[in-house]
Amino acid sequence: MDEYILEVRNLTKYFGGLKAIDNVSFKINRGEIYSIIGPNGAGKTTLFNMITGFIPPTEGEIFFQGQKINGLKPYQIARLGIGRTFQLTTLFMQNTVLENLLIGQKQTREFPVFHSIMSVKRRRVSQSEAVERAHAVAEFIGLGTFKNTMAAILPHGAQKQLSIGLALSGDPDLILLDEPLGGVDMDEIDMIIELIKKIRDEGKTICLIEHKMRVVMNISDRILALSYGKKLVEDLPEVVASNEDVIASYLGDRYAARG
């Protein structure tokens, strides 16, 4: 088995004349927390969208567990074992926490329509397996007491937790989190950080986009800094924090100035 789980090779993305990602390459190691930072518009979300198949790269290749995945559809990539959240909290708002997590289960995405209508036993077995797993995920993400609450009326922090739970529900090997702390209150931040660490401790690999520098510096094993679609530096947190280009383009106003 390869040491790294994801490899991005010479990736470039044009939106019309705008070069959103400019010849970026990196590798993510199995089991690490790998963070991507960069100012607004640097191309972080675009990178996620290409890895998960939502937008095609203009050039370059993406390998997951040694298999080339660019060109595959989003659902195919998800089934290979990549889960993701969206920057704007995206949930099935009209459904309960449990229903959300049930939809994300492996059994749910694959159970054939034919058996849904015709079979008795297979249907019941898969359904109870999926429900059991959904309960387990709800407990794992700390929403055990909210199982029957509609997603739309959850507090913002709990919605963020649920979105992570959704990314987790199909039991992926790699999880991409797009600003999981965005807009979250101070008292809820620690809970989500603990959740992210707990997911890592389960043996999963995490790729994290986050603006909150203190958190990123603490939690990450390695960091990739982007600016205007270009890779500035990729290294250990302390090295990235002291990189002059990074300070100039990004940390300057957000982090260094404070410290």
Binding site: F54, A78, G83, F92, L102, F111, V113, S116, L166
Partner: peptide, 29 residues
């Protein structure tokens, strides 16, 4: 009734709710 109360029915509800999210969860929408 059997279709919509099954796991396949959950997929339809997912598509109604948010097609991008459904795809990100591995559903062939």
């Amino acid at each position: 009734h059997r279709l919509i109360t099954s796991l396949s029915g959950k997929r339809l509800i997912a598509i109604r709710g948010n097609e991008d999210l459904a795809q990100a969860l591995g559903i062939n929408t």
